[in-house]
Amino acid sequence: MKGRLGRAIVLALPWSWMALFFVVPFLIVLTIAFAEPSEGLPPYTPLLRWSEEGGPVIQLNLANFRLFLEDPFYLEAGLRSLRVAAISATLCLLIGYPMALAIARAPERWRATLLMLVILPFWTSFLLRITAWIGILQDQGWLNSALMALGVIREPLRLLYTDFALYIGITYCYLPFMVLPLYATLSKLDPALLEAAEDLGARPWRAFLQVTLPLSMPGVVAGFLLVFIPVVGEFVIPELLGGPGAQLIGRVLWTEFFQNRDWPLASALAVVLLMILVAPIALFQARAAREGR
């Protein structure tokens, strides 16, 4: 009895945290998403109204969700965000996997230092680091100046405010989220498994493809999701480094919320975004549960 009470208390903390900071805010957003925009404070209509006969009436406005499906502007922004997130996560994977593997196979005494180097950029302000990239990539920036001084180019290249700059910024910022879970999986891999593969006739490259890679899939999936999910809603990096033409869903959300004061539409977009992102996480969880059995 006492043990159960203690357990209940311990469990109550994370549960109330989840309720307070996830469930309640999400319910508020969901409520707003079904409302209609209006002038005034707050800038949306209440869902629960009293009809003229005196009874309570719940009015659900589905127009915001319909707009997402019907207006190609929102759909395209959503799809473009998913594409940018997928490409960014792939870039992070291609750069992060060799890094994580190198750290996992480095001599024991070096590993902590190498990991620290991966995390070190987090100690500087995020905005400062992005601004630094502006300094590097702009027309008169370091990269162009260096290339011109070397005689590689005559005219400065247009780098800033392009997809190139966008991917550099995102990959740079999110790389540690890829490296850390990959390192965690790869460092736990029994080196005897690779030796066994080689002993049985697998050349190093084939041993990697048949043993290391499949056994590190949980890390690959975790790293991919850790990059993919936040990048879908990323607002700051596209705003500061990306081109003006390509509207991403994060930017659209911001515009609808702050400039157009259309809270219901912004909320509906946020709900749709969440639904899209829940699917891959659920898939991953199901896979992890199956592997665990």
Binding site: E195, A197, G201, P214
Partner: peptide
């Protein structure tokens, strides 16, 4: 001669069976 070209195979202490 690298391990993968030797006509020698090994039974490992931990067995090192591929878990996947």
């Amino acid at each position: 001669v690298p391990p993968y070209e030797r006509p020698i195979n090994m039974m490992f202490q931990s067995y090192a069976l591929f878990p996947h």
